[in-house]
Write a protein that binds this DNA or RNA. Structure first.
Lengths: 251, 251
DNA sequence: AATCGTTTTCCATGATGCGGAATAGCTGGG
DNA sequence: CCCAGCTATTCCGCATCATGGAAAACGATT
């Protein structure tokens, strides 16, 4: 695992501590040596980092065999961040959109080279894996394309993205992605046609704040039978309306 | 603000970074110098810490005037931690308890010298401030007393707690608290009689895991008129039943 | 414009984090 | 039961990395 917390190179120990946390994003419990291996750090160093994180309740230590897991401090901060970004105020709008269309609506932001789902309609549901992990690749999701398209991603940046995930239909290189982004900007929405999950299509539209900066995107996802070509323009319009409402409440 | 992330003294920079985060717990946006002032750190050091946190999306930077706020990474980790601790599975039980009794039910854990509310019944409600901050003092809350009583807190530890918050009815020193904790253990539940908020009483019971360790507590809170003496034993029984159910799902 | 408070960058210094190695703890297998 | 191998934890000398003063940009307020 590469140090997800890309960072500038400054504050080595802090950066490392945060990438230790990143190891736990999938919900596993991990031991010291396992983490050291993944981050390619000496065990003693890793151990020291873990201790610091445990001391601040960012990780819990569960003994025998000594494992670590995400701590309750993160649950606390999570709620605060969630409320501060007003995501809870946006979710009713997503719910409404989902009800009208029959598809799943969600808000996402970019995080390193991933799309992170921040809020979704009816996320309490138990439909198997609930968009497992809450992370998607940028190049193979409508949300990712929308974020890239309206954040004026430079060509050099596209070149540095990983293109190793997705399906056979996924975009597989920077040039292709560049063209797709142009097309996306032109027609005003991003589209994902079974590029990530077989049988599913997603529409993505930007969520712009007053300054024109696009830091969030709204996605509408459903099975192919629902997201048929004829309905797409209609769904896009609805999504854009919702995006505007969401933009007003989101910080 | 004292470095809430108590920590052992090792990993200065990490510890400091985490206490920077702690400054944002109340949901404010803050600037560099403000934080430096609160933590009593040089501005340049603080700035460096902030940059590292921003680089990992733990903080967002919002320009002009340069302010910082909790970032979306925390929202992400929060959800994961929340799910991992199975708090979402516990909340229906809280809801049920709340419905039966008419009081508010919540789960909490200890965090430094505070009680942190992790989950509550009907937390979507808009009743003013929604248990603002989600933090309570240990000595002046039933949840805190329960946590202290069943975590065999040593006398030296009680002596080190702050007793400066609460109402006139609050416990005001370690000796008094020690007696209260003994009483609490004996009768099997903690009680808070308007010691924190005028007009409100809370019952607190421990949530023990199989190993006997008590890391969580369950609270039942309501106005004095609801939590009259005659009902308390009944409410305690109900709370204990719920606590057992919760203990089974919580990790 | 001029001033004050703030944010950001720079750099020499030495405290602080680093990681190899040694110790202690588990676990599973023969 | 004991040994072997893996894992966790502690220790300590070295040099790297974080530190914080000072100065340079920046921006708001009068």
């Amino acid at each position: 695992m590469e140090p997800t917390s890309s960072a500038n190179g400054q504050l080595q120990s802090v950066t490392r501590a945060l990438s230790v946390l990143a190891c736990f994003r999938n919900g596993e419990d991990l031991g010291v040596s396992e983490i050291a291996r993944r981050l390619d750090l000496p065990v003693s160093t890793t151990h020291r980092l873990l201790s610091a994180l445990v001391g601040a309740d960012f990780l819990d230590k569960v003994d025998s065999p000594s494992r670590y897991r995400l701590g309750t401090a993160l649950a606390e901060y999570g709620r605060i961040a969630y409320r501060q970004h007003r995501i809870h105020l946006a979710e009713p709008h997503l719910e409404e959109l989902a009800t009208i269309t029959g598809a799943k609506a969600s808000i996402a932001t970019r995080h390193g080279n991933d799309v992170v789902l921040l809020g979704t309609s009816s996320w309490r549901e138990a439909d198997g894996h609930e968009l497992q992990g809450l992370r998607l690749p940028l190049h193979a999701s409508a949300l990712g394309k929308a974020l890239l398209a309206w954040a004026q991603a430079g060509e050099d940046e596209l070149a540095r993205l990983p293109y190793n995930s997705g399906t056979a239909r996924s975009i597989s290189g920077p040039v292709e992605l560049g063209k797709e982004l142009t097309r996306t900007r032109e027609r005003g929405y991003a589209f994902n046609d079974e590029e990530l999950v077989h049988g599913f299509r997603t529409i993505g539209v930007p969520i712009g704040d007053e300054s024109g900066q696009v830091r969030f995107a709204l996605g509408l996802r459903g099975p192919v039978e629902l997201m048929i070509d004829e309905r797409v323009p209609f769904f896009v319009d609805l999504a854009k309306v919702t995006a505007r409402k969401v933009a007003d409440v989101l910080l």
